[in-house]
Computed example of a mutant assay.
Amino acid sequence: MGKDSKPKDAGGKGKGKAKQGGSGADESASKGKGKSGKAAADGLGTCTYVKARHILSEKQGKINEAYKKLQDGWLSNGDKVPPAEFAKVLAAEYSECPSGKKGGDLGWFPRGKMAGPFQEVAFATQVGATSAPFKSTHGYHIILCEGRKN
């Protein structure tokens, strides 16, 4: 996954949860604190690096199937998905990216390294949370955010 010269809108069914605050992560930083002051506390939109795992599929149906497993296994109970389970149960089975063999692990990456929609969702997803499915120029993704730092 590299930087695209022309990022496309994330659009699609996964837009809601993953793309918080309208135009992406930077908007939450410019708005400042929300009602609870959470924007400053959780670092959304303000960090320089994110550590993430992902699932990439060319077909929307396959990514939706993976997301259904997430919902049935963890999300419906309000639980966070353990990175080891995400890697073993989902990424290894569903991801078509070479990183799928490593459990979808992308390691730490800075702003500006990933394609537009992918970067927006990765930097807008809270640590320990997974994004809803979304589309980028590479296909359909689900991201698990494992960490953030400056």
Rank of each mutant, 00 (worst) to 15 (best):
G107R: 03
K149V: 03
M1D: 11
Y94N: 05
P98E: 05
G37T: 04
T130N: 06
N150M: 02
I143G: 08
H141Y: 14
G14S: 05
N150K: 14
I55V: 15
N64W: 00
G22E: 09
K13G: 10
A18T: 12
I143V: 15
G37P: 05
I142L: 11
K3E: 09
Q71T: 14
C145F: 01
D72M: 10
G2Y: 08
K31H: 11
P98H: 05
D105Q: 01
G32T: 07
G73E: 01
G22K: 09
V121Y: 11
D42L: 05
E146I: 00
K88W: 04
H141D: 01
T130Y: 01
S30E: 15
H54Y: 05
H138E: 06
E120N: 14
P117E: 06
K31C: 03
E146R: 00
V81D: 06
G116I: 05
P110H: 02
K17R: 10
G43M: 12
K68G: 02
G112W: 03
L90V: 10
K59Q: 13
P117T: 05
P7N: 10
A124G: 11
G78A: 06
S5N: 08
C145E: 02
F118E: 08
K31N: 12
I142R: 04
A122W: 04
D9Y: 15
A91Y: 01
S28F: 07
N77V: 00
N150Y: 00
